[in-house]
Design a protein around this nucleic acid. Structure first.
Lengths: 208, 208
DNA sequence: TCCCGCTTGTAACAAAGCGTCACGATTGTG
DNA sequence: CACAATCGTGACGCTTTGTTACAAGCGGGA
């Protein structure tokens, strides 16, 4: 497969899963991993994993497995997500602070570049390494820092306003942690996280 | 399709997506919705949606669409997730509190029945409607309240301990919000959430 | 009332994706 | 040097999904 072609949704989704497991594995001190092990953690077929990877090069060693570090780099190259990316977080409440103080984004080269809130009490407050800014400055700050990703961590009733502000500021990818259904232009991707629904899904498969 | 058969992974995943969108739609006051609208919000083919649903009955009205409420109930029936389910949350930090005070689980009939933490300072502290309990009581409480779902909201370094305690207490489905790779028995399902990786995945598709 | 537009339910076919089995090649170990 | 482990890769067939098409049913407006 030529890397200049567009990956299919399925391949990109699986590569992301590998990325996730490899990052975790590296953190746990594993410097090598086999397709079989990745299969156990991801529930993706081991042959499929090898096939996915071998489409882009020979990253593994026969009889040994893959070097965790090297494979991580290769997958990042394939997904073209190497380097640093900036992100804007809207909502400086409990969830916003939890996200801001988590190392999870930084580990993947994603830098939380700004935090916004509408509450005047919260503006200026220190959250992680940042201070909360006013929503009035969102367009200016997002454009200055070249931000195309926004995370919405506000209650459902203000989620649409937050989305509108982000989109107005040039954001193209929105992560929605609220329960609101967002209306957005066609060129904006919205990802809504709903742990409760994921849980119901998991419970279905647990039924004897 | 006979409802006594097991759904395939694909169908169950899509039904969960519908559940998510319908819940949001209901919250926004929509009492009717068409397969086309669901398709726009889920990026799932409209014909596929109608096919999925019609496999279990005739839930829609031609020329009109689906009644949001009724369809929600039907999908819950299909996924056998009606009624109330209990959940144990480990970690009373920022993320734990954010989860505990979110209405998102309650909306789907999932009740956060207990919160645990290892930190003696946190034990007894009020979080949402609950008080944090000691990890020492986890096995007893989980068995008493028939809990088979656990959510891990602790730092990576204590995640494995939390998982072990939950599994020891009879939990079969673990939601892992840490960056740790968990070792678990084969009969325990682990779902690890990694927003950073989801974001990289979304960014790939945003590339011009 | 009658007509028209919208939307579902459903069939048929083609295309893509994925699981499975198989097996040679390569590597590290004892 | 023999052996076990693991990758890279091909072949085959099943399953899933996208696409197109269209009749049937529903509601609104003339």
């Amino acid at each position: 497969m030529n890397t200049s072609e567009r990956l299919t949704v399925g391949v990109a989704a699986r590569l992301s899963r590998y990325l996730q497991v490899l990052t975790q594995a590296r953190k746990m001190g594993k410097d090598r991993i086999s397709s079989q092990e990745i299969a156990e953690y991801t529930n993706i077929n081991a042959t499929q994993i090898r096939r996915d990877l071998s489409a882009f090069g020979r990253f593994g060693k026969r009889g040994v497995g893959y070097r965790t570090d090297a494979l991580l780099d290769e997958i990042r190259k394939i997904l073209r997500t190497q380097g640093q990316h900036n992100l804007a977080l809207v909502g400086a409440g409990r969830l916003g602070s939890a996200i801001a103080s988590s190392p999870i984004f930084a580990e993947h080269g994603i830098h939380i570049a700004a935090i916004f809130d509408t509450d005047p009490e919260k503006i200026g407050e220190r959250i992680g390494e940042l201070r909360a800014s006013s929503m009035d400055d969102i367009a200016q700050i997002c454009r200055e820092r070249n931000i195309i990703v926004g995370v919405i961590a506000v209650p459902a009733e203000s989620a649409q306003d937050a989305a509108d502000a982000l989109i107005d500021a040039g954001v193209k990818i929105v992560f929605n942690y609220s329960e609101a259904l967002l209306d957005t232009p066609a060129d904006v991707q919205v990802h809504t996280s709903n742990p409760a629904v994921e849980l119901l899904y998991a419970m279905y498969f647990h039924l004897t």
